[in-house]
């Protein structure tokens, strides 16, 4: 079995001063390499949510990769569980596990299951993938935080197409009813789902008005601008007595020229040539994007 060499670059230690743009490029390259090696997976929605996860894991969240079960940690739930590749990359580069393991995505016996599985891998807060359920579990976690009078925060990421699931609105109603201001939801509003534009398949818009009507505070953000994401989170923390939605305008396939705004890249893997093109698009300034990532070693 040949295994892709992922490199061991990690950003561990306290958050706050990491180079977020560099990290996001690395995580995007990881996504491309993982999905290419697995020959299946979901690059489009992983790339559109990369900057949100980068900001949360490398700047915002109070966490300790050495103690993934630390009771007072902030929690992140990936309700859009099909974006597992970006979650795995974010966890590995943050220090939860060796980034070399990223290349095992979707292989038999791997801890990196096709969709996140609770208990398989440190840092996974909940099994997700069956759309809508993760958001409900995040509401449960926020309820637990309130019951225990803890001040940790819960972050949940929905896909925009995911909002078509009825259970999402059950959970949105419950979060407002229980005044869960420790809960911040994100929607990765890239506008595309498997069968096409969300507005054509089953229009969930206006998303902001729906959340407001359910009793949430709503922030609009550019999901590819760390300052914009950061301002929205700061406002969420200031908001008392109700949960906050950060509706993030994003581009599906962000960063890879031929994947951007193409619904077809929701759930398909790049071939060898496409991978190289993608890595070139995602190269750090002054490099070709090809180095270690292109090399294969036999194990």
């Amino acid at each position: 079995m040949s295994q892709l060499e992922m490199g061991r670059q990690q950003w561990t230690g306290p958050a706050g001063q990491f180079p977020l743009a560099d990290i996001a490029r690395q995580l995007r390259r990881d996504v491309i390499n993982m999905v290419w090696a697995a020959k299946s997976g979901h690059p489009g929605g992983s790339l559109s949510s990369t900057d949100i996860l980068t900001y949360l894991f490398y700047h915002e969240m109070n966490l300790d990769p050495q103690q993934p079960d630390w009771p007072d940690r902030d929690r992140f739930v990936l309700s859009k569980g099909h974006a597992a590749p970006i979650l795995y990359a974010a966890l590995a580069r943050r220090g939860y596990f060796d980034p070399e393991e990223l290349s095992t995505l979707r292989q038999q016996g791997s801890r990196l299951q096709g969709h996140p599985h609770y208990g398989s891998l440190p840092g996974i807060e909940m099994s997700t993938g069956s759309l809508g359920q993760g958001g409900s579990t995040a509401v449960g976690m926020a309820l637990a935080g309130k019951l225990d009078k803890k001040d940790y925060r819960i972050f949940n990421l929905w896909g925009d197409g995911e909002l078509e699931e009825g259970i999402v609105w059950e959970s949105v109603m419950a979060a407002a009813h229980y005044k869960l201001d420790n809960l911040t939801g994100f929607v990765d509003w890239n506008g595309l789902q498997i069968d096409g534009p969300i507005t054509q398949v089953m229009n969930p818009e206006p998303i902001d008005a729906k959340f407001r009507a359910f009793g949430w505070h709503v922030e609009l953000a550019d999901g590819h601008d760390f300052e914009s994401i950061g301002r929205a989170i700061a406002n969420a923390k200031e908001t008392k007595g109700r949960p906050t939605l950060i509706l993030c305008r994003t581009v599906k396939g962000k960063g890879v020229s031929f994947m951007e705004n193409e619904a077809g890249w929701h759930g398909s893997a790049p071939n060898d040539a496409q991978r190289l093109q993608a890595l070139a698009d995602l190269a750090d300034p002054g490099t070709s994007g090809e180095p270690a990532a292109q090399k294969e070693v036999n194990r």
Partner: peptide
């Protein structure tokens, strides 16, 4: 009463919220 949570008529959400509570030690 402080440890009783009514989910309303929304069973699917109740089951998953329970999962989130359980993952938090309840």
């Amino acid at each position: 009463p402080e440890r009783f949570i009514n989910a309303g008529i929304a069973e699917n959400n109740m089951i998953c919220m329970a999962g989130g509570l359980a993952a938090s030690g309840k």
